[in-house]
């Protein structure tokens, strides 16, 4: 555990520092398909819990259900309730997640930052080519969301981050940058007028179904929406 991580831990929530690196993202960065550069950043070790979000809502009344404007949080907001447990909070909209992160001097991670952290397993920074790893993750997505969620604190990956897989979907800052065609089968034939610029994103790695499903879920949502299996964690800049 580096000095940066230790300092971040003092701030309350536990953040883990991730080093700068490159990532062959599933979302093509550009038509030249070069890997994406990720600057060093810090990521919360676990998703935000129900207990933590409850404290936030108690301290920030405008974010209570019934008081928050519908443009920031719609009908499903906190439908699963809040309590003092360490289960991940769900039923939070993108705006609510942003507000929480801002309250602790942080922000939501970008898609690339999230994907970069999530590519790792316990021993490798990039386990995505391992069919066994992919099958395990796909297995979670295939099971329906029944019953209450378990508490956070699963096994850590090689960076020390936990629960990126198998617990909840997570918001990212640029969820509305996932410019995929609503009908994913047309991706190879982008409607150029619909998305000025490069057209709809072509997904590079169509074998990585877990990521495809994540992109599908995030691109199906609006910023005021929430679901029973969608939570979040925060990210911070790393200053040296």
């Amino acid at each position: 555990m580096g000095l940066t991580t230790a300092l971040l831990a003092l701030a309350g929530a536990s953040y883990v520092a991730l080093p700068a690196g490159t990532l062959d993202s599933v979302l093509a960065r550009d038509t030249d398909r070069k890997p994406t550069r990720i600057a060093a950043f810090a990521l919360r070790e676990t998703p935000v819990t129900r207990a933590e979000f409850k404290r936030f809502v108690d301290a920030h009344p405008p974010w209570q259900p019934g008081r928050v404007p519908t443009v920031f949080a719609g009908a499903g907001y906190l439908l699963q309730g809040l309590d003092d447990t360490a289960a991940p909070v769900t039923g939070v909209s993108w705006f609510a997640a942003q507000a929480y992160c801002e309250s602790e001097g942080a922000r939501l991670p970008t898609w690339y930052e999230w994907e970069y952290a999530a590519a790792a397993d316990a021993t490798r920074t990039d386990a995505r080519q391992d069919p066994a790893w992919r099958a395990r993750i796909l297995g979670w997505y295939a099971r329906p969301a029944n019953g209450p969620l378990p508490v956070v604190g699963g096994d850590a990956n090689v960076y020390g981050v936990r629960d990126l897989h198998g617990l909840v979907w997570e918001w990212v800052d640029d969820f509305n940058a996932l410019l995929v065609n609503a009908d994913s089968r047309s991706a190879a034939d982008p409607d150029r007028l619909k998305f000025c610029g490069a057209g709809a994103i072509d997904l590079q790695d169509r074998q990585n179904y877990a990521v495809l499903m994540r992109v599908a879920l995030l691109s199906s949502l609006g910023a005021a929406d929430s679901t029973g299996t969608l939570g979040f964690r925060c990210a911070r800049e790393v200053t040296r």
Binding site: R29, D30, K34, D174, N176, A177, L178, L179, L193, K194, F195, C196, G197, A198, G199, I201, G222, A223
Partner: peptide
Amino acid sequence: KFQYRALPDGEFNHSA
């Protein structure tokens, strides 16, 4: 409900 994405060459990919 606008979608946009920065591209490395400074252009943006965005809904219109």
